[in-house]
Amino acid sequence: MTPPDDALAHEGLVVGMDVGGTKAAVRATTADGTLVADVVMSSAEWDAEPADAAAGWLVEVLGRALPAGASIGALVIGAQGLDNPEVAHDLEAALRSRGHGRVRCVNDAALLVPAAGLDAGLGLIAGTGAIGVAVDPSGAALVTGGWGWVIGDEAGGAGLVREATKAALLAHDDGEPDDGLLGALLADFGVTDAERLARAVNDDPTMASWAPHAPAVFRAADEGSALAADVIRAGAEHLVRLVDQLRRRGAVGDAVVAAGGVITAQPRLADAVRELLAQRHPDLRFIVLHEPPVAGAWFLASRL
Rank of each mutant, 00 (worst) to 15 (best):
D32V: 15
G33T: 06
T34E: 15
T34L: 15
V36C: 12
A37F: 12
D38W: 12
V39Q: 13
V39C: 13
M41W: 09
S42E: 09
S42C: 10
A44C: 02
W46L: 04
W46E: 08
E49A: 11
A51N: 01
D52T: 08
A55S: 01
A55V: 02
G56H: 07
W57L: 11
V59P: 05
V59Y: 09
E60T: 12
R64A: 14
R64Q: 15
A68S: 15
I72V: 15
I72W: 03
I72G: 07
G73C: 04
G73S: 07
V76G: 00
I77G: 05
I77W: 04
G78K: 07
A79T: 14
L82Q: 13
D83E: 10
D90G: 00
L91E: 00
L91T: 09
A93Y: 00
A94L: 02
L95G: 02
G99D: 01
G99I: 03
R104T: 01
D108G: 07
D108A: 04
A109F: 04
A109C: 12
A109P: 06
V113G: 11
P114L: 03
L118T: 08
L118V: 06
L118F: 06
L118A: 13
L118R: 15
D119Q: 14
D119H: 11
A120D: 13
G121T: 08
G121F: 06
G121Y: 04
G121R: 10
L124N: 13
A126L: 07
T128M: 07
A130V: 05
I131H: 08
A134V: 08
P137C: 09
P137S: 06
S138Y: 05
A141H: 00
L142Y: 00
V143E: 00
T144R: 13
G146D: 06
W147T: 06
W149E: 08
V150Y: 05
V150S: 10
G152E: 10
E154N: 10
A155Y: 09
A155W: 05
G157E: 05
A158H: 09
L160E: 03
R162N: 09
E163V: 03
A164E: 03
K166D: 14
K166W: 11
K166S: 15
A167F: 06
L170N: 06
